[in-house]
Structures are given as C-alpha cells and as structure tokens.
C-alpha cells in the first residue's frame, strides 16, 4: 500500500460542554499531517462507534470532563469489541489517577491529563498507529 494518511476520530461523550481541549488536540494532530474527523460535543457511545466504523479510522480520541468516563468508556470499548473494530483508543480530560488502571485494563491505550503537551499526544498516536 502507498503511504496511508492516518485518520483519527475525535469525540466527546458525555454532557459537559467544554470542547477547548479536544479542539486543541485535534488541531495538533491535523498540523502533524493527520486527517482528524471531529464529531463535536455530546456524543453517545453508539454514535461514536458507528462513526468509527463508517470512517474506518486508525485511532479514536475521547475527551471527557464530567466524570462520566467510568460508565461511558467501558460502554464504548464494549461496543467497539462487539463490532470487531480493532483500533487504538486514547483519552484525555479530567480523569482521577485512581481510575487510570481500570481504564487501561479495558484496553484504553493511554490517558492524557490536563496540561499534557500536545506534542506528546502526536508522538504517541504516530507510534501506536505505525505498529
């Protein structure tokens, strides 16, 4: 195959209305040469997984600030599995340290807390997708 452009789906499940963080990360990924499909706010797990299938993305970035990750992230991971969508999932936002092991346990590849350098996220995605 020729050189394939990396495609990333960026989505924000849950009800909080803060999209600054996810937009900053989306732009950084775009500037690094990736094609970023931005879904916007208030997406349900079903909407996110359906979009991931249709867009045939290499990775899925989730952002959440509301604390609902404990319910929504496992739901998303479950639906991905059910639909045999094998992609890298990473997350960002406000996620307490004590929740991180549980999330990694359900195959979320990395959690980026507030103040993460976008360069680190870009590097992470590039490395993971290349594998």
């Amino acid at each position: 195959m020729g050189e394939k452009n990396i495609r990333i789906l960026m989505a924000k499940p849950g009800l909080d209305g803060h999209d600054r963080g996810i937009k900053v990360v989306s732009r950084a990924l775009r500037d690094a040469g990736m094609e970023v499909i931005y879904m916007g706010l208030h997406q349900t797990p079903e909407q996110i997984v359906e979009a991931a299938i249709q867009e045939d993305v290499d990775a899925l970035g989730l952002s959440i600030l509301s604390g609902a990750h404990i319910i929504l992230f496992p739901k998303i991971m479950e639906l991905l599995k059910e639909n045999r969508v094998d992609i890298i999932v990473f997350a960002g936002g406000i996620i307490p340290d004590e929740d991180v092991p549980a999330l990694k346990n359900i195959n979320i590849a990395e959690i980026f807390g507030p103040g993460t350098n976008t360069e680190d996220i870009v590097k992470f995605v590039k490395e993971k997708v290349a594998k």
Binding site: L29, R30, A32, E35, Y38, M39, G40, Q54
Partner: peptide
Amino acid sequence: FGGGAFLGDRIRMKDITTDKGIFIRS
C-alpha cells in the same frame, strides 16, 4: 501545510449518525 485535515462536517450530522440506512464518510 503538512497535508493534514480537520474534517468537521459530522458536527452537524449528529441526528443521523446511528441510522443504519445512512452511511457518512468524511
């Protein structure tokens, strides 16, 4: 510059994302 893209049309197509009679590709 760099060939990346921000594909934002889905933001407006939320109502129709999960309809199995619709397929959206950015």
